[in-house]
Write a protein that binds this DNA or RNA. Structure first.
Length: 277
DNA sequence: GCCCAGGTATAAA
DNA sequence: TTTATACATGGG
């Protein structure tokens, strides 16, 4: 990829066609805030501002080294999404339409621990409040980095009590966060190893954490471990379509099809009439 | 007040 | 194995 340094960051041609709004606001991540003409967010302990203009993507607050080591991977800039979306398009007219509308979504490479915590917090919750709780978690227990806060480590959170966590108002989820942190610190849960396990084994391991069920496990695998390859796309798609046509939300996440899932999620929200019986 | 939110643990059928 | 209910909190 051809990148250039700017005064306080880098810029590069948006040849992969990433759509920042769709990518950051589709529900896969919770720490990006939309400003006037850019998104500001924190990942891997670094805060940056990302914007798109005239076919270029600008990342402010970074350098070429961090771009290559962190942001190119985080934003999944080296995956051929155009090829994926073509495959998806052939599956059905609905998917084809959805792909047209939402073809700039990238599945991010988020940190496994952050994804695990975030999706524990997401259960029986809504996105604005999920974001608030996570921001509060970072402000109260994360390391300060300039004007922002890193996501707190498992080690930090493992020492907290439910009362300590009451400041973030996560409700009944507090005990789950602490259990996850303690299992990670004791190495009973090794996210690095789990990320390389066969899918069913990995899912089983994640679900030994109190408060992690099939849905949270899928989100961690998909968004925190980038296990996009693990499900056959057609099998997953069938599940989602069946769920949608039953009038329910697609609550089980998939593969590589995470891409398609995101399309479908948006598509079903934007065109609810098409998904009524 | 009542209902719901990208669910899960628990008890009971 | 499948089905009902509570769970903390805040917004509509």
């Amino acid at each position: 990829m051809n990148i250039k340094s700017t005064i306080n960051g880098v810029c590069f041609e948006n040849s992969m066609g990433i759509d920042l709004g769709l990518t950051f606001d589709c529900g896969q991540c919770f720490r990006w805030a939309k400003k006037d003409n850019y998104y500001i967010g924190t990942a891997y302990g670094k805060t940056v501002e990302i914007s798109a203009k005239d076919g270029l993507i600008y990342i402010e607050g970074t350098n070429e080294t961090d771009f290559r080591n962190i942001w190119a991977k985080y934003l999944d800039l080296n995956t051929n999404y155009q090829k994926i979306t073509q495959e998806i398009s052939n599956l059905s007219p609905e998917i084809n339409q959805a792909v047209k509308l939402y073809s700039g979504i990238h599945i991010l490479n988020q940190e496994p621990w952050e994804a695990l915590c975030s999706f524990i917090i997401s259960q029986n919750n809504n996105i604005p409040r999920i974001k608030k709780i996570i921001e509060s978690l970072c402000e109260n227990f994360g390391q300060k980095i300039s004007n922002s806060y890193a996501f707190p480590s498992a080690k930090t959170l493992s020492r907290l009590s439910v009362e300590d966590l009451s400041v973030i108002k996560s409700g009944f989820r507090a005990k789950y966060i602490i259990d996850a942190a303690q299992k990670v610190v004791s190495d009973e849960i090794n996210l690095e190893k789990i990320s390389k396990m066969p899918l069913d084994e990995a899912r089983k391991a994640l679900m030994t954490i109190n408060g992690v069920g099939p849905k949270v496990a899928e989100c961690v695998l998909l968004y925190g471990m980038h296990r996009l390859e693990a499900f056959p796309l057609d099998v997953w798609m069938k599940r989602v379509m069946e769920t949608l046509f039953k009038g329910q939300k697609p609550t089980i996440f998939g593969p590589y099809a995470g891409v398609a899932q995101q399309y479908l999620y948006h598509y079903s929200r934007m065109n609810p009439e098409k998904f009524k019986d």
